[in-house]
């Protein structure tokens, strides 16, 4: 753990050094690329402003994740459980992926307004497919031996019991992969929504800063957003590891091996 922290710090220091080097060697003016120190000062001075907007974006991401996950889980269960759902829902699901979700952002802002609703919907839409597809895939690939065993043990075909005791737990690792992807893309959805039209949030702040040539503020907002996104990913990852300690492909067990 300690070694990991050191590695992270060292990587960060290296990146800052490269950044500083690019600014110095390229002789870049601050309105193109401010140096790390200027951004650091901006971070410190405008901490309140940045945190306020970050809170808005974080809330949009978390709510979008929650709603998208719930919707994805329900869709995957319906697809896994009912042939009719597969026949009707699956083509729609696949066709929906042909439409670039980001192209829907203006429509969502039109329908749901400039507030948080349209950003939550955006985050929800971008994570819906990875969550549904991964979980459904897991539900479809329950090892046949386990299902045979269940059929011999309970021949009366209690499908929900098999689903609850065998198929769903067996699909949790796949669901976990979907959730990791979701954690990585949900911030993209929220920020994109903010770019199209918003009155708060890090994406909004970045656009404002950009048009006012406050490039150091733009960079500061970008940094906060990166920390937010990385933090979310690690939180989800840690939660999944704790939830699925039995899963052999768990990265923790791989690293310990």
């Amino acid at each position: 753990m300690k070694a990991r922290l050191w590695r992270a710090l060292l990587t960060l220091a290296g990146l800052l050094l490269v950044w500083q080097g690019v600014v110095m060697l390229g002789d870049l003016p601050p309105y193109i690329m401010p140096d790390p120190l200027a951004v650091g000062v901006r971070l410190w001075r405008d901490a309140g402003l940045l945190l306020g907007h970050a809170a808005v974006t974080a809330l949009e991401i978390v709510l979008g994740m929650l709603l998208g996950t719930v919707l994805g889980v329900l869709s995957a269960l319906a697809l896994g459980y009912s042939r009719r759902a597969r026949r009707w829902l699956l083509p729609v699901l696949i066709a929906s992926q042909a439409v670039p979700v980001f192209a829907l952002a203006p429509l969502l802002v039109l329908w749901l307004g400039y507030g948080m609703g349209s950003k939550i919907a955006m985050a929800m839409l971008v994570i819906y497919f990875p969550v549904t597809a991964n979980f459904y895939d897991g539900l479809r690939h329950t090892p046949g031996g386990w299902l045979d065993l269940a059929r011999v043990m309970a021949p009366e075909g209690r499908r929900w019991a098999v689903l609850w005791h065998i198929a769903i737990p067996a699909a949790l690792p796949a669901f976990g992969s979907g959730l990791r992807v979701a954690a990585a893309v949900a911030p993209i959805g929220a920020v994109l929504g903010e770019w199209v039209g918003a009155s708060a949030g890090l994406g909004y702040l970045m656009l404002q800063a950009n048009s006012r040539m406050q490039i150091d503020l733009l960079f500061a907002a970008l940094l906060v957003l990166a920390v937010l996104a990385v933090g979310l990913y690690f939180l989800v990852d840690a939660g999944l590891r704790r939830l699925l300690p039995w899963h052999p492909a768990n990265p923790a067990t791989l690293e310990n091996g």
């Binding site: 386990w146 045979d148 065993l149 011999v152 043990m153 065998i166 699925l244 039995w246 052999p248």
Partner: peptide
């Protein structure tokens, strides 16, 4: 009752 070549124990 049925017992296969694989133990079919549920890992969780």
């Amino acid at each position: 009752a049925y017992m296969a070549q694989q133990d079919l124990l549920l890992p969780w």
